Structures are given as structure tokens and as C-alpha cells.
Computed example of a mutant assay.
Amino acid sequence: MSQSFVFRTIILDTQTLRTAVRPGSSHLPPLLICNGIGANLELVLPFVNALPADLEVIAFDVPGVGGSSTPLLPYRFGGLARLMARMLDYLNYGQVNVIGVSWGGALAQQFAHDFPERCKKLVLAATSAGAFMVPGKPKVLLRMASPRRYLQPSYGAKIAPHIYGGTFRRDPELALEHASKIRSGGKLGYYWQLFAGLGWTSLPWLHRIRQPTLILAGDDDPIIPLVNMRLLAWRIPNAELHVIDDGHLFLITRARAVAPIIMAFLEEEPKRAVMHPPGGLARAS
């Protein structure tokens, strides 16, 4: 599965980043993936494999995750967005399309806002606007606050149905398979990621994100209730919302169903940004 990727470890000042590029020949800009909290890049490979083989894809481990070094001091999302731009410079990329998953969705929003010329289109999957989100159940959030599921795969497999929902509720083998791909960066890296999002919110500037935006939500997501995705779709001027019949990790569990939706969006000609009317939240298609 990894043979089609070119893995590189790059150094930007004191920060080491592990990157993976799947070369492609498509006319579309490369797709840059911002992964979820604690998630190493191998976890998104099933999704990448569902995309057309000619689409160039860039994945990386954020600081403190997988094969990337853990910084002495934590980054905030603004600093991570700048680091991501420097990574693209190092790898010789200009403009990209960006997909952000869960925690990575916040990073993707920040990047699209801070570097609009580098981000052509934006895909947000199972994410929120940050501090002002409608939270999931307290028991789920408490489990998410600890890196234990990444440090102990057996524990991760045990709680997967409760925190991820959807297909994970019905398929115990899937939870074990997912846990087997985890490459933990350690407790500190996980806590640094939590710190990046402490008090962060995109709500005041979501209306300034002008890129065409596809928002994907699971209808059985214990971590990010659907109303949060509706809020994003309402506040981002040129956004469309698709609701997937699955849980938080639908990008993996429903990869072959979701990939065509994303590709159709990436292939679309850009539309003029229009603010959504203030009368209500955007409807799901």
C-alpha cells in the first residue's frame, strides 16, 4: 500500500516532519491532507487508495505525531499553518487543495484563512469551528482528552464503537484493524495538539473563507454533533454540506463512497461566493 508513496523526512529549523507524497498526473492541484488528533499518516491511506490514481496526494505527520519530532514548546494553529506553508515550499508545491479531518479540519480552516492564495479548494470532514462548538457527550470527550487509545491499541479497539460511532459500532474487526495502524508519537505530542486548539475558534472569520468548500458530516458522530457542520456550512460563503450515513471516521469506513463526492467537488468550476441568508442553517444535500 505504501509503495506508491514517496516518504521523506524534512527538517524545518528545529522541527522534523515526516511526509508522504503519492505522485500524480492529474490537471487538478495536489490534495493536501490534514489528519485528526494523534493520527499518523498511515491511517488515511485507505481513503487515499479510494481516490483516482492520477491525483497527487500529500500527507504528513504533524509535530509530535508518528514520525515527526515533538517540539519543546507547543504550536498554536496559526504556527502550524505557517509550518505547513513552509513544508509545501520545501516540497516545491504552490497551490493545493486541502482536506482537513476532525482536529485537522481546524488546521485546514486556519491555513485557508491565512494563506488563501495557497488553498484553491477546501474540504472539511467531521470537524467544527472550535471553542464555540456544540460538544459531544461528556464521556466521549473525556476519552478523547487522553492519548491512551493511541498508546494502548487494545484499549483503542475497545472504545472505538463508543467514540467513533457508525460502522465501528457494527464491526469489531474494523476497530482492531484501525488500532493496528496507529504509530503513537507519545503523550506529550498528543497534549501539544490539544493545546493548539485550546480556546481556538474560527467563528469570527469563517465568513472570510472564500474558497469553494465541501463540508462532510457523519450522521452518527459522537465527537462532532451534526449541528456543528451545519454551522460551518452556514457561515462559510461558498460551502455545500453532504451528510454521510456513518460515524466520525466515515472518510476511512466509507472511503469508496466518499471519494467520488470529493472528486466531483474538486472537478467543479468555481462558483461565485455568496453569503448564506441569516434565516437558518444550511440544509444537507
Rank of each mutant, 00 (worst) to 15 (best):
Asp54Arg: 05
Leu55Glu: 11
Glu56Met: 15
Val57Phe: 12
Val57Met: 13
Ala59Glu: 10
Phe60His: 11
Phe60Tyr: 15
Asp61Trp: 03
Asp61Lys: 01
Val62Arg: 08
Val62Ser: 15
Pro63Trp: 03
Gly64Thr: 12
Gly64Pro: 15
Val65Met: 12
Val65Pro: 10
Val65Asp: 08
Val65Cys: 14
Gly66Val: 09
Gly67Arg: 03
Ser69Tyr: 02
Thr70Trp: 07
Pro71Val: 01
Pro71Ile: 01
Pro74Tyr: 04
Pro74Glu: 09
Tyr75Phe: 12
Arg76Tyr: 00
Leu80Ala: 12
Leu80Val: 13
Ala81Lys: 02
Met84Trp: 12
Ala85Arg: 05
Ala85Glu: 08
Met87Ser: 11
Met87Asp: 06
Leu88Thr: 04
Asp89Ile: 02
Asp89His: 08
Tyr90Ile: 01
Asn92Arg: 00
Asn92Asp: 13
Tyr93Asp: 05
Gln95Arg: 06
Val96Cys: 12
Val98Glu: 03
Trp103Asn: 11
Gly104Glu: 09
Gly105Pro: 08
Ala106His: 03
Gln109Ser: 06
His113Cys: 13
His113Asn: 06
His113Ile: 03
Phe115Asn: 05
Glu117Gly: 03
Lys120Tyr: 09
Val123Gln: 01
Leu124Phe: 10
Ala125Phe: 01
Ala131Asn: 07
Ala131Tyr: 00
Met133Glu: 13
Lys137Trp: 05
Pro138Gln: 06
Pro138Thr: 00
Pro138Glu: 11
Lys139Phe: 07
Lys139Leu: 05
Leu142His: 03
Ser146Lys: 00
Arg148Met: 08
Tyr150Gly: 05
Tyr150Thr: 02
Ser154Tyr: 00
Gly156Tyr: 11
Lys158Asn: 08
Ala160Asp: 12
Pro161Thr: 06
Tyr164Arg: 00
Tyr164Met: 10
Gly165Tyr: 14
Gly166Leu: 03
Phe168Asp: 10
Pro172Ala: 04
Leu176Ile: 08
His178Trp: 15
His178Asn: 15
Lys181Ser: 15
